[in-house]
Lab assay of single mutants.
Amino acid sequence: MDETGKELVLALYDYQEKSPREVTMKKGDILTLLNSTNKDWWKVEVNDRQGFVPAAYVKKL
């Protein structure tokens, strides 16, 4: 969790967005987890953008 109590995830792999609903991340990025109710796609925030990334590409910290 960060200082505001939000849950964080670590990008395990690079991911290039394939639609406007997704976000690009690089391996090693720390992202804010917004929603993990879907087992396949998690909603995150990175670089002031919100979108989805494959759940298998990130790990909760």
Rank of each mutant, 00 (worst) to 15 (best):
K59C: 15
F52A: 03
L8Y: 15
K43I: 14
W42V: 07
N35E: 15
D14G: 06
K39M: 09
L10A: 06
D48K: 10
D29N: 06
R49K: 11
E45W: 07
R21G: 15
L12H: 03
K60V: 12
L31G: 12
S19N: 11
D48G: 15
F52E: 03
N35P: 03
V23R: 02
P54C: 04
I30C: 06
L31H: 03
R49D: 04
E17D: 05
K39F: 07
S19F: 06
V44Q: 00
A55G: 04
T24D: 04
E45N: 06
F52V: 07
L34S: 02
K18H: 08
A55W: 01
W42P: 00
N35G: 07
K6E: 09
K39I: 09
K60S: 08
N35M: 08
W41G: 00
N35T: 07
T4V: 12
Y57R: 07
D14I: 02
M25Y: 02
V9W: 07
T24N: 06
K59E: 14
D2Y: 09
A11E: 01
K59Q: 14
K6I: 10
Y13T: 08
K59Y: 09
L10K: 07
D14E: 05
D29F: 05
K43V: 14
K18W: 04
Q50H: 09
F52W: 15
T37E: 14
N47R: 13
K60T: 07
V58D: 01
L61P: 03
N47D: 15
Q16T: 14
S36G: 11
G51D: 01
N47W: 09
K43R: 10
V46K: 15
V58A: 03
S19D: 10
L33A: 02
K27Q: 09
M1W: 13
Y13I: 09
P20D: 11
K43L: 15
D48Y: 08
L8Q: 09
E7G: 09
V9Y: 10
E3V: 14
A55Y: 02
E45K: 09
D40W: 15
V58F: 05
K59M: 14
W41I: 03
V9S: 02
V53A: 02
N35F: 05
K27A: 12
Q50F: 07
V58S: 01
K18C: 11
V23I: 14
Q16E: 14
L8W: 13
A11D: 00
Q50G: 06
A56F: 08
T37N: 12
T32M: 11
Q16L: 12
E22P: 05
L10H: 04
R21I: 12
N38M: 09
V46F: 15
K59A: 12
V46W: 08
Y15H: 04
K59H: 10
K60Q: 08
E3L: 11
T32H: 09
T24V: 03
V23W: 04
A11N: 01
A11R: 01
D40I: 14
I30Q: 05
P54D: 02
L61Y: 08
A11S: 05
T37H: 10
E17W: 05
T37W: 08
P54K: 03
E45H: 06
K27W: 03
L31P: 02
V9L: 11
V53H: 00
N38L: 08
N35R: 06
R49A: 07
M1F: 13
T32E: 09
K39G: 09
D48E: 10
E3G: 13
N38Q: 08
A55K: 06
K18M: 11
Y15T: 00
A56V: 09
K43A: 08
G51I: 04
K60A: 08
Q50W: 07
W42N: 02
M1E: 13
E7N: 10
K26Q: 09
Y13N: 08
G5M: 13
